[in-house]
Amino acid sequence: MAQPRREQEPLREIERELMLISRHSLAAQPVGFSRVLDRSAYHLLSRMQVQGPMSIGQLAEAFGLDTSTVNRQTSAMLRAHLVERIADPEGGIARKLRITALGAEQLAADRAGALDALGRVLADWQPRELAELRETLERFNTSVERHEGRPWPRARD
């Protein structure tokens, strides 16, 4: 049953802001900085960095993608020496992909650039406001993950 228009208005505003976040996050880069990794490599490497070596099937399940899509993406990463195939450390049959030193270096460079850009955008925010934003974004993301049945592991420094 559809919600009355008045009750939908906050959802419309949230949808618009989320659309703008995706637009801004792709454009927010420090002057003179260009990303080394494409978007899919950045996401896949980020997941492996937190979770450790993963098979193509595990990556496909984690992202809700078809294995052929993940296979194409990881093949490009293998050719670029960002990941390497290894035997399953847990003794399974499927080979897993592990981040190489080059992959970790390029991921760190892109993350540093993203953090620099984010720091410039949020430079005039108070620590309390930053904490509130982090908490709200994490709550939103964990709600999405719960709804999709695909939680993202979070590493706390």
Rank of each mutant, 00 (worst) to 15 (best):
E13R: 14
V36C: 11
R72D: 12
T69H: 08
A41F: 07
P30I: 07
S22L: 11
R12G: 13
S40W: 02
A41R: 04
D66M: 05
L18I: 13
V31D: 07
A60C: 03
G52V: 07
S34V: 14
I14T: 14
L26F: 10
G52D: 01
L11A: 12
M54I: 07
M48T: 01
E15V: 09
A28L: 12
Q51F: 00
R16P: 00
S68T: 15
R35I: 00
V70K: 04
Y42W: 15
A60Y: 02
R35F: 01
L44P: 03
Q51A: 15
L45I: 10
S25Q: 05
S34I: 10
A28W: 06
R72L: 15
G57Q: 09
L44G: 03
M54A: 11
R72T: 15
D66N: 11
I56E: 02
M48L: 07
M54W: 02
L11H: 11
L18P: 02
V36R: 15
Q49N: 12
D38I: 09
M48I: 06
D38L: 09
A62P: 05
S34C: 08
H43R: 14
S25N: 00
E17P: 00
E13W: 06
R39P: 03
F63I: 09
F63P: 02
Q49V: 01
S34K: 14
A62N: 07
G64C: 04
P30S: 11
L59G: 00
V70E: 06
Q58S: 04
S40D: 10
S68I: 14
A41Q: 10
R47W: 03
S55V: 02
L65K: 13
Q29W: 00
L37F: 07
M19A: 14
